[in-house]
Nucleic acid binder design. Structure first.
Lengths: 153, 153
DNA sequence: CTATGTAAGATATAATGTATCTTTTACGAT
DNA sequence: ATCGTAAAAGATACATTATATCTTACATAG
């Protein structure tokens, strides 16, 4: 699924960067493409390693961190706080913004799905938060669980 | 608030350990008490440091990790995955189990509130998860936000 | 062609966590 | 009482993740 649209995603991102007046450099492309092609979330060091397979111009891990910061600022990738891993945004080819991002993470196979919780679910959460003295909550949520295939096996 | 009931919490935990046939050793008590008295979540190393204030029998950080594992197994403390910190369960003196635990974490002052989301909110989330191919989700949730006092200031 | 600013590289170090092995302690059986 | 065993604690080494700082490369505007 991811691979099929990966080229479209890359060129859409390129367009967005042009629109925003920022540069999608060769290094940044390398990191982003690695994440777009990945089947699962990756750590910064895993990304560096994979970039270096069959390349004679090694990608330093430190650069990966900086590039991830950039890509996160642009909302092209997300950081999974509960896993210390990074994943490409599943809406790279959409036109609208995605400040919101909710993730389902399989505890078994580490598969990650980015989903949109209903505004209903969110407002219920906000109500509970407000009762506990929290006036605003972040829309980024990471929910651990078991995916269907890991559940049945 | 926390300090007022800290002694009761400690003795309640001691009772629970007796019931379960496990030992609440001196070291384990030190760590748990430190967390019970803490105003906020603490990292393993912060716990070790605080244990060592005014003590001539230093608590090694590695022991803290092992003891935290034990305390988490017994559900006396929780680990905040998004913060790499630990916090004592707010239900130490309750009789029932607390597999569920939802946390509100202030991004500004790091205050943590353990709350109970309504089963309604949870079932809405479960529905969304199920639609995305996740058959079961963990009830531990960490929601980042701003507490009232940080919001207004 | 130089000055300037952004990106990338190199290096050092901090913070967090895991693995493994040894020593100590608790405690029941002899 | 003391001996043996298992659990707990301690010591050590190292892996992983991340940040900070300084330098170098390079494109581009003046």
């Amino acid at each position: 699924m991811r691979t099929v649209n990966s080229e479209k995603a890359m060129s859409d991102v390129e367009q967005k960067c042009a629109d925003r007046g920022i540069k999608l450099t060769r290094r940044r492309k390398e990191v982003l493409r690695t994440l777009v092609l990945a089947e699962s979330a990756m750590s910064a060091y895993e990304i560096a390693e994979r970039c270096n397979v069959g390349s004679d111009d090694p990608m330093p891990a430190m650069s990966v961190y900086r590039i991830l910061d950039f890509l996160r600022d642009q909302q092209f990738v997300h950081r999974l706080e509960t896993a210390n891993k990074y994943i490409s945004c599943s809406h790279l080819s959409c036109g609208h913004d995605h400040a919101q991002s909710q993730f389902l993470i399989c505890n078994e196979c580490r598969k990650v799905e980015e989903i949109d919780f209903s505004s209903e679910a969110f407002s219920v959460m906000e109500k509970a938060a407000s009762a506990a003295g929290f006036s605003s909550i972040s829309p980024q949520l990471e929910v651990r669980g078991l995916c269907d295939s890991c559940e049945t096996s």
